[in-house]
């Protein structure tokens, strides 16, 4: 299954305005996306909503086709009105939530769960602890792994199975999303 999420700490990104930075915009957005940004009441915020949607779609697309990491944001065509991103004829529907502190986006999919925690250097083990509580699994049976191209998954030792997960962190926040499972 495909999965993807992305998180942005607004304190960091809004502290460095990008709207007047044409070179940055042209490396990340198409002309039509730049028009969408300018049509929003808060264009700086729109930049990061769209960036977050693109990142989410990138992670989903990368997992689906097992593509090594690339920096090609402009090839992910983002539609902020319809909350979708198109990449090579694939249409990714994105959910987006936002408050004054952060933007969080994830690939729309049934039966997903999310864990959001404050970022710390131990955030990955914090996730696993919380995951174990929510799924009622033994902590010792859970191992966070990355596959050969760096895509994360949780290896559930007692089941000999991998669970796809998506991980994101930025500034003060970290989040993972994963499919709900019956163990």
């Amino acid at each position: 299954m495909i999965i993807g999420n992305d998180l942005i700490d607004l304190e960091i990104v809004l502290g460095k305005p990008r709207l007047k930075n044409d070179r940055f915009l042209s490396k990340v957005f198409t002309d039509s996306e730049i028009s969408q940004i300018y049509s929003q009441s808060h264009p700086e915020l729109a930049i990061w909503k769209m960036w977050s949607m693109k990142e989410t779609a990138y992670k989903a697309h990368q997992r689906l086709f097992q593509i090594p990491a690339r920096l090609d944001p402009v090839t992910y065509e983002c539609d902020l009105y319809n909350l979708c991103v198109i990449k090579e004829q694939k249409n990714y529907s994105i959910n987006l939530e936002q408050d004054e502190n952060h933007i969080y986006s994830w690939l729309e999919f049934k039966n997903l769960d999310h864990i959001k925690i404050p970022y710390s250097t131990n955030y990955k083990s914090d996730f696993i602890k919380e995951f174990a509580i929510r799924t009622d699994l033994d902590l010792r049976n859970i191992e966070l792994r990355k596959n050969h191209i760096g895509i994360p998954e949780l290896f559930l030792k007692h089941l000999g199975a991998n669970l796809p997960i998506s991980i994101t962190h930025h500034g003060r926040f970290a989040a993972i999303c994963f499919p709900l499972i019956n163990c």
């Binding site: 940055f24 490396k27 690339r70 920096l71 090609d72 402009v74």
Partner: peptide, 24 residues
Amino acid sequence: VDVVLDVEDEFDIEIDNESMEGMM
């Protein structure tokens, strides 16, 4: 992306999006 912009400034070059894609 900021790194790419800083590289452009430092070396006075233009890095097109296709080249940027593989700058890992």
